[in-house]
Design a protein around this nucleic acid. Structure first.
Lengths: 162, 162
DNA sequence: TATTGTTATACTCTATAACTATA
DNA sequence: TATAGTTATAGAGTATAACAATA
């Protein structure tokens, strides 16, 4: 209601603020939804990443996700224990493992896709179909110009307080 | 590049994913910028909140920010030590303090406004002025429909891994 | 007895770095 | 000697709950 001067499209927030606010909201809502599939956002991200590019080494995935190897191991452990992914012995380098989805993992991935679609629909409930296409197009352009690689986004960093 | 079916405006990400990705990016970039003013996102948020609605009690602000009182105290301490805000004895309830910006705090707030504007401009570099207005309008509608109170957004929750 | 602000404590999450096994 | 994966440890950040002063 009471902001500074009106630049291009300001007055009640600014695009950056709206993006941060809606981004946090979307992420929180998504986490809530996939919790019903017993998945965390990180697990869902890895599931999708392996589906898109299977057979890489753990380090390769960890690097793409921006996760340190130590953190990545427990992520893989949990998903392997649940039978969602498997570690196949590396060829020819026996130090490394190649990660692949199991049958169960592929099944869960399909469920995840449905959940993601519903999530998207809910979030865009305020928009017409045309507006929604427009929004997606604008956001895509911004993301590209900002050099954000499609497919993965970094886990939210916690802004410190002290 | 390779996604499931194309619903309304899908194919390379979906609106929700783009929002989460761009939101995290915008927040990280903003944190970086205001670090030059020696401010954390939480501090910047409080500064603005006090500017908009001065004289409330600590609990009132803490509640609005969704921060537990214990966390809020150290936030206020740091900003008071820097001379940005002051605690005035509560009237008539002497248990509470009323928070206000100091002269220095108001000065920093103006700088913060300039930084925020630059941040917004950078983020929207890919868009024309018209497109930027459109984007802001669409995001505002979505935010309203999702019941997000304008002015503050919750500190990003960390999605757990294990 | 309830409430404001504060301090103390315990817990979660994360990354750095030591370790092993292959190369 | 260097690298993939793993484990151990320490640090930061968070919230819960005990505490003192005022109502």
């Amino acid at each position: 209601m009471s902001e500074t001067g009106d630049g291009p499209g300001r007055s009640s927030g600014g695009v950056a603020f709206l993006l941060a606010q809606l981004g946090a909201h979307a992420a929180a809502l998504f986490a809530e939804r996939i919790a019903r599939l017993d998945l965390t956002p990180a697990q869902a991200g890895l599931l999708r990443m392996i589906a898109v590019t299977p057979g890489l080494s753990q380090q390769a995935y960890a690097k793409r996700l921006g996760t340190p190897p130590s953190r990545f191991v427990i992520l893989v452990d949990a998903m392997q224990d649940r039978g969602l992914i498997e570690r196949r012995p590396g060829q020819p380098d026996r130090r490394s493992y190649a990660l692949h989805l199991t049958e169960a993992g592929q099944h869960l991935l399909r469920q995840l896709g449905a959940v993601g679609k519903a999530h998207d629909d809910d979030l865009c409930a305020a928009l017409t179909l045309e507006e929604r296409v427009t929004l997606r197009e604008l956001l895509t352009r911004v993301a590209q110009q900002q050099n954000l690689t499609a497919g993965v986004h970094p886990g939210y960093r916690q802004p410190s307080d002290t």
